[in-house]
Design a binder for these strands. Sequence first.
DNA 1: CTGTTGATGTCTGTGACTGACGTCAGTCAC
DNA 2: GTGACTGACGTCAGTCACAGACATCAACAG
Lengths: 196, 196
Amino acid sequence: MGRWEPGARERLQAAALELFATRGFEQTTAAEIAQAVGLTERTFFRHFSDKREVLFFGQQEFLQAFIDGVEAAPPETSPLEVIASALQAAASFFPDERRSYSRMRQSVIDQNPPLQERELHKLAGLATTVAAALRARGIGEPAATLAAESGATVFGIAFTQWIRDGETRSLAAIASDVLRELLDLTGAATASRPFP
Amino acid sequence: MGRWEPGARERLQAAALELFATRGFEQTTAAEIAQAVGLTERTFFRHFSDKREVLFFGQQEFLQAFIDGVEAAPPETSPLEVIASALQAAASFFPDERRSYSRMRQSVIDQNPPLQERELHKLAGLATTVAAALRARGIGEPAATLAAESGATVFGIAFTQWIRDGETRSLAAIASDVLRELLDLTGAATASRPFP
DNA sequence: CTGTTGATGTCTGTGACTGACGTCAGTCAC
DNA sequence: GTGACTGACGTCAGTCACAGACATCAACAG
């Protein structure tokens, strides 16, 4: 056994979520989180660049899943089909067992503007990365960015629906539905062609 | 003459942008901004809820323009046509004279993650408000949110293009083009109908 | 047995932000 | 004209997020 308990980062993340959920984000200091797992404030900030990051660290695999989904699509696939593939890959990172945890986490975020800002920033980063992956497939601008941002939007709406009370469908199924709705929406507009 | 020079808020905003542009956002303290216009730090925070807000205060009219554009659309208009109307209305808030100022401001934001987070939060707030306006017109979910978010995305991409070096088209023209691209993108996907 | 390394603690400082309270010019009632 | 009132500001003191510098100590390589 080492000098310290292993998994300091994970313990800090768990303690932080619990404290944020009970006392609230602002009413919880970084020192309190650290103390709750037998560490000091300084160590907290060694693991997380700032207090908010404790709720967002470790999303690298999720982002990678999204990218993998992009690259898994066969060549010459239309941008939105690539996005559909990416959405399915990303959704696999949120199996139903994770739903209740996600719900709790999201309720904390929804109650704190600073956390919402960070979440939006992460989502924007995702869109930027996906856009780059699309460009690497030969898709030009602004199509790549447009498709990537639309994918992020669809994912966000689907995720919100996934954690709603009473929702039982899988995230993959919901995401597929939402993407379909987006196509219907724009399809309807394209059909009538009232745009200059 | 009063005891103090009038327009404290505007003077603070101007000084802040200038200092952020020269020294950088992190290297500029709120106290320095205040001192630059003969005020104290405490007064700075009376005008702006936090340091970042000095760059974002006063966007109420812009948001209102967007909403006005939504409400100006004739009844029974398809969601994306409503968005097109809103985009045109919003674009009128950025005449060409404002381009160079916007460029400077954006370059400051682009260099500072905390400012980017705030900007995304404001844009998300815009989408939320527009979605509510669409729902008030009888558009259901998720169509309303989807359309509003797409509108925000289009505006964001168009604005980025409007700011680019060498760009001479008006924001309204660019926004119109980007929206057209979005329709082409989804239209192409809808045409082949490869989605389940 | 010894040098190095990695994760941690300790100490100390800066700057964002807040609450309580004091100040003073203009304004309005009387 | 005088006094109460108000709005915009200053002063003071405090909390907390975060960062740099340095010490500590188990583990591990040699």
